[in-house]
């Protein structure tokens, strides 16, 4: 075998291994067709909801090979908004997110396992308040296909459940507020 043949075979093997529709999607934050919301229970009476306004990210997804999916998201911690200026000030302070020391919240996926019905289990590392912990998110594909403007989009939703104490945020808001739920609505435009 000459080197040319070896190169051809190697290239062919590579093409066969790579998914046909493998594509990178950029999360559509510009058009605000993606959002990161969170909920914390207030003393057992109600829910305080908020948003993390500024974030960016991308994901790799292929319907033919969903288990190879991956996602990376970077959030500007200072963009926390619960529609109450003085509470948001408190959340940005050193008693909570400490945004001057830890300006970014990041999520980097480590694995995705499809359930075979458009949903799946996404595992990844969440870095929050300078602490990185593995989290598991149940993900559902909302839809994918051509958009009306010549692009191709795919969108997912999922909720992460985490305890602030595990990320070193130990302000006592009461037993009902120990768990925080982060709701991700992620729509991406295929590149």
């Amino acid at each position: 075998m000459n080197t040319h043949l070896i190169k051809s075979l190697a290239l062919g093997a590579l093409l066969a291994a790579s998914p046909v529709y493998a594509a990178e999607y950029v999360i559509d934050t510009e058009g605000a067709h993606a959002s990161i919301l969170f909920r914390v229970n207030h003393l057992g009476f109600s829910w305080v909801t908020g948003r993390l306004e500024k974030f960016s990210g991308s994901f790799n997804y292929d319907a033919a090979d969903p288990n190879s999916s991956s996602v990376t998201i970077t959030i500007d911690a200072a963009s926390v908004n619960t529609n109450q200026a003085e509470r948001d000030k408190h959340l940005r302070s050193s008693e909570f997110l400490d945004v001057s020391t830890y300006p970014e919240i990041t999520f980097v996926s480590t694995s995705y396992k499809t359930n075979g019905d458009g949903s799946g289990v996404l595992k990844g590392d969440l870095s929050l308040h300078g602490v990185t912990k593995p989290v598991t998110i149940d993900v559902t594909r909302v839809g994918e296909g051509d958009d009306p403007w010549g692009g191709y989009r795919a969108g997912f939703e999922g909720t992460a459940e985490l305890k602030l104490k595990e990320f070193g945020i130990d302000y006592n808001l009461g037993p009902m507020a120990e768990t925080i739920y982060m709701d991700f609505n992620i729509e991406g435009v295929r590149q």
């Binding site: 200072a78 200026a85 003085e86 948001d88 000030k89 940005r92």
Partner: peptide
Amino acid sequence: HHQADRAG
């Protein structure tokens, strides 16, 4: 922008 934090 971040009025409460800055004024604080």
